[in-house]
Design a protein around this nucleic acid. Structure first.
Length: 578
RNA sequence: CGGGGCGUAGCGCAGUCUGGUAGCGCACUUGGCUGGGGGCCAAGUGGCCGGAGGUUCAAAUCCUCUCGCCCCGACCA
């Protein structure tokens, strides 16, 4: 492609609306433009990167035996009512009526549609297993779209659905996808990690997330330094530690703590550490029994709301506002405690091991000391409810844990029969019995991968794309448009590389060298060839690696061979397979 | 939805408090010089000041309503 013939509106200045680096660079480099909140047009270079990712995904899905199809974006409400999700999915599901007042929605995911399709066509175990996938635009009416392609409302996603005869076969399908995902992200040239995950609102029993490691990640991962354990902190299990504190229980005491509401203030006032204190947090619960619940965790710990949600089998939990707490309990926040509390109380494991701790007094300006669970108050459940901390041991091997940030780019679930049972998608097994299909679902955020790749690979001058997903592999800068020798060399190399199947961009614009260098860096193209006055001076052209700045000088006739071998090397370094 | 902020030229912004000629930088057009990291000189083009209503002799500026966008929280590929 000739630069003068394409459409890459680069920006010298940074658009004000962009917060994260991938969003800023995608706008500046002319890869995307915003149409409206969370909805973007992919310009030619942005689309080229997307297509590269799609191609890798297709190849690996096909290799794993999945079959591509394409489902509609517009879906009838009735289908969603069958699984109860039309009501449950919430405002993220964009609903509308067509001219006949038929209720419809834009597909945020396609479990219902695929299950509807399969129940109509699959009758026998002999038609299974089946794994169907599509690459489709999805729409989720996010409360707050942000970060450009990272969290848009409209985004491109690959979603696959597997159908099996039993749990064991479903496990095989799951494992195949797990392996395909490993290959996909490796081939994309990304540093990533598969982690155990919460299965979230889609439901189901077992799940992994694929996380691109980047400082700007929205998720935090707990990763063992000794073994292979890695999990989203939402999920990372905190093992109940052995009780070390066998002190005798002391007499309960009431102490005045005027104006001391925060853990830190109470601790300072009483001269104790936060590990001697128990926090009481009250949550509003949607789903489950719907009753508000008080959660107890140690003073220096955080409640992990996903764990709480799972314990209560709730669809959502939300911390009560200060005023709501007072209305419910008559106690201002800061002085809440489990003693004498009238609502349901659940405690983190750790609280059960604590002796003689301090809790809120249940009235303004008072706390209680030497409080002991069991003697002074009762709880309805003791469970793993807090977020894993840096000093917690690995739940698998007991080793030391580290925490890193990640961007979720893929998620695989074992769904079981959640959808097939609700929608009566059944098959007849060997034994003649009718059974629900065992399902799995597997998502990859295609457009998000492009953003994540940039978050992970950039510098102050712009993007640095991995070769496999760069819109072009090579950019040739012709710095002597009016010089016949320079132009001839540039044109010749351009033709040679194209003949070799290399995707190459020739910067033939009548621009000053500075602009061309800046744009080349910004666009993130892995290899840059500079052909300028040095050709006349010493017969050399220059090839520079975008990632590390490594620069070599060569004679023009050596260039194509050099680039070919460098590109091949880059690919083999990130081949997901032999 | 709650909290904070912003809508003025394609982009980034000033002007708004204190009403009175709509401005700056970048980009764009033309000419010239220049030519290895966003160059220089000169001359230009481009605005219903988000929209509607109101106050006023006079509104980008004050008032009311409205639409849109961004940032912080709960959601997720």
């Amino acid at each position: 492609m000739r630069y003068s013939q394409t459409f890459v509106p680069t920006l010298k200045e940074t658009p004000a609306e962009a917060e994260v680096v991938s969003h800023r660079l995608l706008l500046r480099a002319g890869y995307i433009r915003k149409l409206t909140a969370g909805v973007y047009t992919y310009l030619p270079f942005g689309l080229a990167a997307i297509r590269k990712v799609e191609r890798i995904v297709r190849e690996e899905m096909n290799r794993a035996g999945a079959l591509e199809l394409l489902m509609p974006m517009v879906q009838p409400a009735d289908l969603w009512r069958e699984t109860g999700r039309y009501e449950k999915y919430g405002p993220e599901l964009l609903r509308f009526q067509d001219r006949h007042d038929r209720e419809s929605c834009l597909g945020p995911t396609h479990e219902e549609v695929i299950t509807d399709l399969v129940r109509g066509e699959v009758r026998s175990y002999r038609q299974l297993p089946l794994n169907l996938y599509q690459i489709q635009s999805k729409f989720r009416d996010e409360i707050r779209p942000r970060f450009g392609l990272m969290r848009g409302r409209e985004f491109i996603m690959k979603d696959a659905y597997s159908f099996d005869v039993d749990d064991e076969q479903a496990g095989v399908s799951y494992q195949k996808m797990y392996e395909a995902y490993q290959r996909i992200f490796t081939r994309c040239g990304l540093q990533f990690r598969a982690v155990e995950a919460d299965s979230g609102s889609i439901g189901g029993s077992f799940s992994h997330e694929f996380m691109v490691l980047a400082k700007t990640g929205e998720d935090t991962l707990a990763v063992c330094k000794a073994c292979s354990y890695a999990a989203n902190v939402e999920k990372a299990e905190v093992k109940a530690r052995p009780v070390v504190n066998q002190d005798a229980m002391l007499d309960l005491g009431r102490i005045e703590t005027p104006g001391k509401r925060k853990v830190a203030a109470v601790c300072e006032f009483l001269g104790i550490g936060p590990e001697k204190l128990v926090k009481t947090m009250i949550y509003k619960v949607s789903g489950g029994d719907g009753q508000p619940v008080a959660v107890l965790v140690r003073g220096d710990r955080e409640v992990q709301e996903v764990k709480l949600k799972n314990l209560l089998q709730a669809t959502d939990v939300e911390l009560l506002e200060d005023k709501e707490v007072f209305d419910l309990t008559g106690v201002p926040t800061g002085y809440l405690g489990p003693v004498g509390l009238k609502i349901k109380v659940v405690a983190d494991h750790e609280v059960a091991t604590m002796r003689n701790c301090v809790v809120g007094g249940g009235e303004k300006n008072y706390h209680l000391q030497n409080v002991n669970m069991g003697r002074d108050f009762a709880v309805t459940a003791v469970a793993d409810l807090r977020q894993i901390a840096a000093d917690d041991p690995c739940p698998l091997c007991g080793g030391e844990l580290g925490q890193i940030e990640g961007i979720e780019v893929g998620h695989i679930f074992k769904l079981g029969t959640v959808y097939s049972a609700a929608m009566r998608a059944v098959f007849q097994d060997h034994d003649g019995q009718e059974k629900p299909l065992i399902m799995g679902c597997y998502g990859i955020g295609i457009s998000r991968i492009v953003a994540a790749a940039i978050e992970q690979n950039h510098d102050e001058n712009g993007m640095i794309f991995p070769v496999a997903i760069a819109p072009y592999q090579v950019i040739i800068l012709n710095l002597g448009l009016k010089d016949a020798m320079i132009t001839a060399a540039a044109e010749s190399l351009y033709a040679q590389l194209q003949a070799q199947g290399i995707e190459v961009l020739l910067d033939d614009r009548d621009e000053r060298p500075g602009s061309k260098f800046k744009d080349a860096d910004l666009l993130g193209i892995p290899f840059r060839v500079t052909i300028g006055t040095r050709l006349a001076k010493d017969g050399m052209i220059e090839i520079r690696h975008r990632r590390d700045g490594l620069t070599v000088e060569l004679m023009p006739e050596q260039a194509a061979e050099y680039l070919l071998s460098q590109i091949a090397q880059s690919y083999s370094a990130m081949s997901g397979h032999k």
